[in-house]
C-alpha cells in the first residue's frame, strides 16, 4: 500500500472514490468476462477438439452408417463418447488422443488426404486396415490400431444402443431402428379397482392372452 493511500484514508476523502473506482474496474472486468462468456462459437465438446470430434463423427458413421434412419453420428454417438471421456472413460482419454491423431496421419499417408475427405469406400478400406493392423508401424508404435478400432466399435455400439441419458441414442433412434417399444406399457401394480366393473369376458378368463405391444 502506498503512503498516500494511508493519508487519503485518514483524510476520509479519497476512500469513496477508491471504492467507486474498484467497483467500476470490477464491473468492467465482469462485463468483459460475461461478454466473453456469451460469445458464440464456443466448442460444444468437453474433451475432444473440434477437429477430433469431426474425425470421430466420420469414423462412427462408417461403423453404423445412416440409411433411412440416422447413423451413429446422427444418434450423437460422438457426444456420448465425449461425455464418457470426461467421466467414466477417463482412462481412455490418451488412447483417443493418440489414436485419432494416428488415424489422421494414416489417412494422409495411405489415402493421400484427410480421413474426412475420403470417400465412404476409402474410409471403409482404411478402417479395415486399422482392424487388421495393416497400418504403418511407425504411426502406431504406441498403440495397437486393431485395439483402438475395437474400442471405437464398442463405444459406438454403447452410444448408439444405450439409454439416451448417457448422451447418445438421440431421440431413441436406436430403439426405433430395432423396433423396441419404449417406454414400455406397464400396468399399475395394485389390486383391481373393485368399484369399476370389469368387462364380462375378463371375469371369465382374466389372463388368457400373452399378446405383446406393438409399435
Amino acid at each position: 500500500m502506498r503512503a498516500d493511500d494511508t493519508r487519503d484514508r485518514k483524510s476520509g476523502r479519497l476512500v469513496y472514490r477508491r471504492d467507486f473506482l474498484a467497483l467500476t474496474a470490477g464491473g468492467t472486468v465482469s462485463g468483459i468476462l460475461l461478454t466473453g462468456c456469451t460469445l458464440p462459437g464456443g466448442s460444444p465438446w468437453r474433451f475432444l477438439t473440434p477437429e477430433e470430434a469431426s474425425l470421430l463423427e466420420s469414423v462412427v458413421d462408417r461403423i453404423i452408417p445412416p440409411d433411412v434412419d440416422p447413423g451413429a453420428a446422427g444418434a450423437q454417438v460422438v457426444r456420448f463418447i465425449d461425455l464418457q471421456l470426461v467421466s467414466y472413460y477417463q482412462a481412455h482419454q490418451e488412447t483417443y488422443r493418440r489414436g485419432l491423431a494416428a488415424l489422421e496421419q494414416t489417412a494422409l499417408r495411405l489415402g493421400g488426404g484427410s480421413f474426412n475427405g475420403l470417400s465412404p469406400e476409402e474410409q471403409d478400406k482404411m478402417l479395415i486396415q486399422l482392424e487388421s493392423d495393416d497400418v504403418p508401424a511407425e504411426l502406431w508404435s504406441e498403440l495397437s490400431s486393431s485395439a483402438f478400432f475395437s474400442l471405437l466399435v464398442d463405444h459406438t455400439m454403447q452410444g448408439f444402443y444405450g439409454p439416451p441419458r448417457h448422451g447418445g441414442n438421440r431421440e431413441l433412434v436406436a430403439y426405433q431402428v430395432v423396433g423396441l417399444p419404449y417406454p414400455q406399457i406397464l400396468g399399475r401394480v395394485h389390486p383391481p379397482d373393485k368399484e369399476v366393473p370389469r368387462p364380462r369376458s375378463t371375469r371369465v378368463n382374466p389372463a388368457a392372452s400373452t399378446a405383446q405391444p406393438s409399435r
Binding site: E171, P183, A208, S214
Partner: peptide
C-alpha cells in the same frame, strides 16, 4: 409426448408404443 422420468426425456406420441390387446383370446 410422454415424459419419461428415467431418461428425463419427452417421447412424442409417434414414437410411443400402441398396445395390441386381446379379449378372451380374440384380438
Amino acid at each position: 409426448a410422454f415424459y419419461d422420468r428415467r431418461e428425463r426425456l419427452s417421447v412424442p406420441t409417434r414414437q410411443l408404443p400402441q398396445p395390441r390387446l386381446t379379449d378372451t383370446g380374440r384380438s
